[in-house]
Design a protein around this nucleic acid. Structure first.
Length: 271
DNA sequence: ATGGGCACCTGGCTGC
DNA sequence: TGCAGCCAGGTGCCCA
């Protein structure tokens, strides 16, 4: 579910409730997440004081004085600040109780998400070590992407969704960025011109930035740390709009499956 | 190295 | 009404 804007929105909601707080107790109701929670998970976290809540790609990094809790929301996960007295709902798998009297509650129906507690540098963890640059950092520029696209036959949409190239761009924002750049998703990455790559980099940054500003995109179940949806859905040009008129030229939006994911584009605006 | 496909899960919707 | 089939915001891993 959540792509970079949704994870960043969650981070911003969690940070004020978590930073400086002690995790007094950890309650696990379901250990079978993407990776099974180890036996010592609760004990390792209990008593930790949260230093800060960071983000790398779609991972949330809850840094404490004794280690870092790495959280990924998978397709259907959310983290909410709740009153721990509130009765747990289905798929409320983990609670982190805070010394403020509140709790962070992890809910994930599909259980593609994960929670991993690491003692050392979280960025050195195998899951994070091989990630490409952040799309909103200066490292991700046209020079970089142009270089990484050369001699690549994959479709540009799949390349842009590859976390080794650039992180945080999932199925919604890949389609949306390509629309804004005027590029067909099925174009071979290696055949983009330099000018096209310049447009694409700008479009990725713009669309992610705009989505963060309005709290991300809620299609079905995404909610932020306060349980509220994001409002970027209203700004989508192509995603989940197959057959509907293009907002720019009225041509019906097309859809096809590309690398097992639905792709949407306007055959007139995108070349 | 690159690319393609499957797997992991639950729930909601569609159409018979 | 019931149920099979399909689809969904991600990504690790295996194979050619």
């Amino acid at each position: 579910m959540p792509e970079l804007p949704e994870v960043e929105t969650t981070r911003r909601g969690l940070a004020p409730a978590l930073e400086g707080r002690v995790l007094t107790r950890v309650v696990v109701r379901e250990r079978r997440l993407r990776w099974r929670l180890p036996a010592g998970f609760e004990a390792a976290l209990a008593g930790c004081r949260v230093r800060e809540v960071r983000r790398r790609a779609k991972y949330l990094l809850i840094a404490t004085d004794r280690g870092t809790l790495i959280v990924h929301l998978g397709m259907s996960g959310s983290l909410r600040i709740v009153d721990p007295a509130l009765a747990p709902q289905p798929h409320d798998h983990v609670d982190l109780l805070l010394d403020s009297g509140r709790a962070v509650r992890f809910n994930d129906p599909r259980r593609f998400g994960c929670l991993i507690f690491v003692a050392g540098d979280p960025l050195a963890h195998p899951l994070l070590r091989t990630l490409g640059p952040e799309p909103l950092s200066s490292e991700f520029d046209a020079d970089y992407l142009y270089r990484r696209t050369r001699r690549r036959r994959v479709a540009i949409k799949q390349l842009v969704m590859n976390a080794a190239i650039v992180v945080g761009v999932g199925n919604i924002y890949a389609s949306e960025a390509l629309f804004r750049a005027g590029l067909r998703p099925q174009r071979a990455a290696g055949r983009l011109t330099r000018a096209e790559v310049v447009r694409l980099v700008a479009a990725i940054r713009r669309v992610l930035g705009a989505a963060i500003k309005v709290g991300g995109t809620t299609l079905r179940d995404y909610v932020n740390a306060d349980g509220l949806p994001g409002y970027f859905r209203q700004k989508l040009f192509v995603y989940e709009r197959a057959g509907e008129p293009c907002r720019v030229c009225q041509t019906p939006i097309r859809q096809r499956v590309q690398g097992q994911r639905s792709t949407y584009w306007c055959p007139t605006c995108q070349r």
